[in-house]
Design a protein around this nucleic acid. Structure first.
Lengths: 307, 307
DNA sequence: TTGTACGCGTTATCAC
DNA sequence: GTGATAACGCGTACAA
């Protein structure tokens, strides 16, 4: 039994890079380079390494990697909710993109709470994720500094920014809100209400777009805005719709800030025997599951990107 | 400039345990013990350490911890889907329990695909998670062995097992399916259909319970079972319902294996002008969001546990 | 292109 | 109860 066989007191039993190196008769660093696909390694050695890896069933240790390189392969992704399918779709797309490249999404849920987001950042940033994806720009100053000082590359999702050194991917929520309102105006509706819940920044930006479009058309009436800070739900959509009708009997269209509210509003209208869209038109947002099953159904949307 | 100050070529700039040890004038291992709340450390030293940690803004390095201890603080959680709110609720409950205890859920989505689950295990088990939560018992033999050989403590969710050395938390899906069917029988329904999608193990177990109850009552008719391997959705629920009526005009009740199917079936009935439950009764499963907004609404459920 | 030497930051082991 | 020492498994820096 030679030296290489002597057992350490702490042996984890794990096959290590050094084991592979011995088997392939190269130095450990060559194995490391070969495994990470670093170029500039003799193809013959790469092949020797590959065989040794296979024979020994070698699997790299992520913790040792992270410690030595100061970077893990996890990508921290912070979303407000999982109960809104919009974010589930986003997470699926992120996984489909990252995972095959050797990165793993690490999901954190903020519940639209900046304090919770801050806590998640404090917990996960020390893991030195390879990247960070956050939702929108609404966060605590402390969170902003945590991100900046961590040095972890950060991309903002679901909103856009033109600020320098800020990466973002999304669309203008305000423009989208204005476009929806404009569409209703073009269909001939004049008393267009806006029903919203959650009141997160993106909802408020859509509200801003709604106002902009109506003011431009000279049709803006603040009484037609019904905002609730409650979490969005079908039940709330129904209640908002009933309140709206009671407060403004002359309303002829409703722009719900999210599809679940719209679904609830539509079901309430069905219950109350109010014809849609003859008596009142309804518009939703985000094309959530089930909207195509309503009575009347929402029109088909263009297929989502990145599906 | 003394020895302790000499800069390594690779200084990461990070404050380390050793820094804290110097500041608190104790050895590194004492800091380590104090921070992990190991008992048997002099309270005065613990306090000195606490102060030094605060002054230096020390944050432990998870990678170094994981490497030295062979255990991370992440808990791998594998669920089939995020688009079913049932699993989102489960994940929320898991987070609420683990996170305050210093563990972080690491979410993986299998899409009911055993190959995908296996790949996730191969990717994440090398991170040496502190624990593993998987959904049900339906997995590849390779996956089973990966789990067993990893030595990571594993709990199975959503189903139960009496096998030795198997930890599980859940209820009997078969018994639940039988109970639902029994309830419909007791209400006087006789031609009770079962509409299912996805056909994952838990759905099939509920189907088994459905059959058991009907056979026992002498009312079982295989023609009343409508199973589709498609993913569950409201749209599919509507289609299944329409097929069911066309194939079995005498059906007087439907047990949908999941609430989204039931919602779709109910909306289809509304569209077709079929009175529910007068012409046909409907039952769903899992109490998903929105079921209380249907026409007629689902009766209120007991509050979920662990909320 | 390949290798040597060492550091990454922490915890296990064992002695005191 | 506390500490010295040596891992843990890999990547960086620099030399050859």
């Amino acid at each position: 039994m030679i030296d290489a066989q002597k057992k350490s007191r702490r042996a984890s039993g794990r096959t290590t890079l050094a084991d592979v190196a011995r088997a392939a008769e190269v130095s450990p660093i060559t194995v490391s380079r070969a495994l990470r696909g670093e170029r500039g390694v003799d193809p013959q050695l790469v092949e020797r390494v590959r065989k040794a890896v296979e024979q020994l069933h070698y699997v790299p240790d992520p913790a040792a990697r992270a410690l030595a390189s100061q970077r893990s392969t996890q990508v921290l992704v912070l979303v407000p909710l999982l109960s809104n399918n919009l974010f589930v779709d986003v997470l699926e797309a992120i996984h489909r993109t990252l995972f095959p490249q050797g990165f793993q999404p690490l999901i954190g849920v903020t519940h639209y709470d900046t304090a919770e987001e801050e806590l998640l950042l404090r917990t996960y940033l020390p893991m030195r994720p390879a990247g960070l994806l956050v939702t929108g720009f609404d966060r605590s100053e402390a969170a902003r500094q945590l991100i900046a000082r961590s040095g972890v590359p950060c991309v903002h999702m679901m909103e856009t920014s033109t600020a320098p050194n800020v990466a973002s991917v999304g669309f203008s929520q305000a423009d989208a809100g204005a476009a929806m309102t404009q569409h209703l105006l073009e269909r001939g509706y004049r008393r267009i209400a806006f029903c919203a819940a959650q009141l997160d920044p993106r909802v408020m930006q859509r509200a801003e777009g709604y106002r902009r479009a109506l003011k431009q058309a000279g049709q803006y009436d603040p009484r037609l805005e019904l905002l609730s800070a409650e979490p969005s739900s079908m039940a709330l959509g129904g209640r908002l719709f009933e309140s709206l009708l009671a407060l403004n009997p002359d309303v002829d269209a409703v722009f719900f800030c999210n599809d679940d509210l719209a679904q609830g509003g539509l079901l309430a209208a069905n219950r109350l025997g109010i014809p849609v869209p003859d008596r009142i038109a309804m518009a939703g947002f985000n094309d959530l599951a089930g909207s195509d099953q309503m009575v009347p159904p929402s029109p088909p949307c263009a297929p989502h990107a990145n599906r």
